[in-house]
Design a protein around this nucleic acid. Structure first.
Ligand SMILES: [Zn+2]
Ligand SMILES: [Zn+2]
Ligand SMILES: [Zn+2]
Ligand SMILES: [Zn+2]
Lengths: 129, 129
DNA sequence: ATGGATTTTGACAACCGTTTTCATTTCAGC
DNA sequence: GCTGAAATGAAAACGGTTGTCAAAATCCAT
């Protein structure tokens, strides 16, 4: 059954931003979960395949996962400092991608769109003393 | 000296789409170039750092490089079958990304946008006989 | 419950793209 | 030519991920 998969999913849901497999694994172990790294990888893959979590690649090639609140197509605005993530819709972008694709004779058009920035609390001046 | 770097850059310029380091290395060796894989990696990194080539990550985590015609900010429409790539501008997307970021209090906003599809010649029915 | 087939698990090893290391080669300036 | 700095590349190390396979858990018909 899917006890482990659910545990992984739960850990992800409790997280604010995108998390790596090793990340998730470490936290689960910290909290006393009895699970192996391999299983975490498998669970995350399965969840991603089933569309229950979103995946993206960090600049250094790590896959990171997130259990998003909405199950409809959306994109992410993520703080490059703390990882805080907000789900954003972009109807204009969806249309633009479709158009740009078909304009050049391409079909079965898909796209990846991610927005990065420094969130308000991270760009606040560091408090001294 | 930039002899090797130039050679790598040239190989890239002669290519239609995005190429991996190992890809570029293999082709250069095929054509008799005396160069090591390490140097190809270093050259590609340097070119990417200098903004002379664009980089993106394939789904399986490989970095691929392309010498684009324009040196201004742009995005790519790439055929997921043959790799044919066309550079596209998206003023609307640029504005949307900025807006979505500042709306949520984010600063120093950047974005990644890639469009994939099947190009006209790849979606043409396979010729039989 | 019981035994056996089936699935899930996880320690460990293999994989693969990339980076580091470091000894050698190349090059610029003298 | 000589010398120090920079570039090169073979080989080893690295790190995230995937494959292997035997053990453990689960299911199911009896
Ligand atoms: Zn932040
Ligand atoms: Zn979209
Ligand atoms: Zn094509
Ligand atoms: Zn842009």
């Amino acid at each position: 059954m899917t006890t482990r998969r659910d545990a992984v999913h739960d850990t992800l849901r409790r997280s604010e931003g995108f998390r790596s497999a090793q990340d998730v694994y470490a936290e689960m172990r910290l909290h006393g979960a009895k699970i192996g790294l391999t299983t975490v990888y498998r669970a995350l893959q399965a969840l991603a395949d089933g569309g229950q979590v979103d995946v993206l690649r960090t600049d250094d090639g790590e896959s990171v996962y997130r259990a998003c609140a909405t199950d409809t197509h959306h994109h992410h605005l993520v703080c490059r400092r703390c990882g805080r993530t907000v789900e954003v819709a972009g109807p204009a972008v969806e249309r633009w991608a479709e158009m740009v694709g078909s304009e050049h004779g391409f079909t079965e058009i898909t796209h990846t769109v991610e927005v990065f920035g420094t969130c308000a609390s991270c760009s606040a001046p560091a408090k001294v003393g």
